[in-house]
Nucleic acid binder design. Sequence first.
RNA 1: GCCGGGGUGGCGGAACUGGAAGACGCGGAGGACUUAAAAUCCUCUGGGCGAGAGCCCAUGCGGGUUCGAAUCCCGCCCCCGGUACCA
Length: 829
Amino acid sequence: MAELRYDPNVIEPKWRAAWEEMDLFHADLEGAERPCYALVMLPYPSGDQLHVGHWYHYGPADSWARFMRMRGYDTFEPLGFDAFGLPAENYAVRTGVHPKDSTDSNIANMIDQLKKMGAMWDWDRTLKTSDPSYYRWTQWIFLKFYESGLAYRKAAPVWWCPTDQTVLANEQVLEGNVCERCGTPVEKKDLTQWFFMITDYVEELLERLDDLEWPERTKTLQRNWIGRSEGVEIDWPVESTEDATIRTFTTRPDTIYGVTFLALAPEHPLVDRIVASDLREEVGRYRHLARRMSDIERTSTDKEKTGVFTGAYAEHPFTGRPIPIWVADFVLATYGTGAIQGVPAHDQRDWEFATRMDLPIVRVIDPDDESPEGTAYTGHGTVVESGPYTGMRSEEMIPAVLVELSHAGQGRKAVNYRLRDWLVSRQRYWGAPIPIVHCPECGEVPVPEEDLPVELPYDVDFSLGAGKSPLERSAAFMNVACPRCGQAARRDADTMDTFVDSSWYFLRYLDPRDEEKPWDREIVRKWLPVFQYSGGIEHAVLHLLYARFFVKALRDIGLLDVDEPFQRLFHQGTITSGGAKMSKSRGNVISPDEYVAEYGADAFRAYLMFGFSWWEGGDWKAEGIRAIAGWLQRVWRLVDRHAAVFDQVEPGAWNQWDRLDEAGRALQLIRHRSVQGATGDLEQWQFNTAISRIMELVNAIYHYAPIEGETPEGVDPGLLAQAIDTMVRLVGPIAPHLAEELWSRIGRAPSVVGAEWPLADPAILATAEVTVAIQVNGKVRDEMRVPRGLSNEEVEARALAHGRIPELLDGERPKRVVVVPDRLVNLVV
RNA sequence: GCCGGGGUGGCGGAACUGGAAGACGCGGAGGACUUAAAAUCCUCUGGGCGAGAGCCCAUGCGGGUUCGAAUCCCGCCCCCGGUACCA
């Protein structure tokens, strides 16, 4: 007889249609009693097919959500599209296809593909950030920020990408100062741009990290990005220039006696005032050069330090000695005070500068241990050559210096951050227009709320142009009456960074069709913070920081009642191909489609969960999917063969533990262990071990009731049915279509989606005997079966008499006995 | 350079709080079924020594703590991410 096989290509579309028919995935947000907001980072709708990364992230995330649903949570699992952005616009520049058209068709295409995954996404609540019904509220939030002073415009040196013809946020500039998107070296330009005042929230953003259930490394990334640094500001009076004081920032005031120069950033406003007349020209030349040099050259680490003497001196606050003031481009105008105290002996950069410029190097800290000569010593130690502080520990000198400085009115505690305000305006078309009108009379005028959205005009010329937004060329868009005085005015031509769009989408999911307000405060209160968020770690300092800032800002404006958007956060690993990241240019892209067509969505999802540690990812292996597809067939065969047993047993009328024979108890025990293990593993997104637990149950059922030949005597139909019932439920989140099919095969009404997750009975888990290892001097020599929970004394006594142990001990009495209850006993002789 | 994370069989990967290293799976070997093959089911499978009972070795390398170390400590090597003149 030909082997019956399950065909995913038949089963999967059938059940997806059935689920849709039953309207299973539409969450009742108001009525929910145990809300579980299962959120995944929303995809960008590119024109390509879904890639393995999508499946690797979304498949397991959905499996977890299904698991939570079976455990009785009211699970809400939405998915939308981060639809604004440069790729669509660049595509339009190349091909002439309008970004709206390409984006909308990409989204339609992507939804078709996503649906094949068999996830529980609530498509009634999908959204796309490029829709006026969405960005209207993005603009509304901008206005709220504007009203409360959190959105402001200023001229500032900003990063400019000459290829994309737009400014970038600091966060979007990569190592080596290249554009995150296209890899072009970026430039600094002085432009007037819009900013969000994220720095206002820097302390809270830092502090509240501690309470979040996020991976430590992600928190560390955010902490490092925020870059809080505690130190002291010191005022240095400039000799020979009336009222001129140079303020420096240092984290090491304990080295103040070692200061042999001060250095100002070339852009420092004081330079002009203090420079000696005979050096004015030289200093001017240096400053000009520094300004012209690109930041890449200027900040390159291996570049020789350069600088120029101003001819001026500052007075040392403690010794009164004159300290020469230099201008040096390794000092950044944008950090701290734009001026530093130079301590060559104890700072590597200062050492290099001093060596080059022939400035004195004065050691004021004795290292605790041998430290190499010819370099700066940056650690702590004993203070020397430092007046009254000599002999002190350098760590203790820090607060003492602060006291002395503040008494003299020449210093104070200060905190500096690496984090800058978030630059949000972009000179591009495909984004949410900034809802501001520039009026010759009234200046900046916010667009009245009732006039929102400020819609993007469809007809524009988006060829790149000289750093100006393409919108600027659309007269119909630009020319508008001033909302305040009615005079002819111009709209702001910039659009918002797409990270603005994605900083609040999780609020909008809760009611994306609401035309009256961006979200319902009560529902948000109920559903936020997000129960579980998942997405790539590449967003650790961009999206995740911005979204946290948004929630805090909206809370303070009085629009929300939550402090943090995402309570729990996990990051998936990456699937590589041939050891390298998949990319079209490398030609190593694995297309999920062909595998899905051959093995089904369930097998593809299950492989991605079983073949890797979800957190780590790994290299794609085609054999893996064959293996898991084979296992799904094995599961199917088991149910197919035994389905009839369900006719013999009332559902739920399982057999009791004390009526089971030895083989029955063995199966029952494994059933409970499997449930317990899979439950714990799924909670932690340890999908690979969760599946291995289920495999153990499947193996045990095969063992108990082989599918070949006659069913052995003594098989208990109730127990067998119960084991299979449990197994199908456990498979529910892992291979949803298959589980649904099996669920109906064992005579249950759809759907397994709403079935209860099985419970492990601790009493049964505890009744079993345990195997205890017997060690002699830490090496395992034997083992024995004992009742669980046997006393240490009894374990010891039994071990001493067990098997070949007396022989091994050769009459010796153990000096020491260590018992680990229910695990092992170690006899030390 | 600095800050994270990691290095375990032929392979993917397990291992609670320091308690039998290698769960589960792939691959491999053998067997059952078959005229045969495929498919399926079952058994074995870290390395070495030994006829066998067994013994020894083994979690990147070298030390240490401990009755006991993949796990903790010290010193190295390698890989992957982040960051980079932030004072």
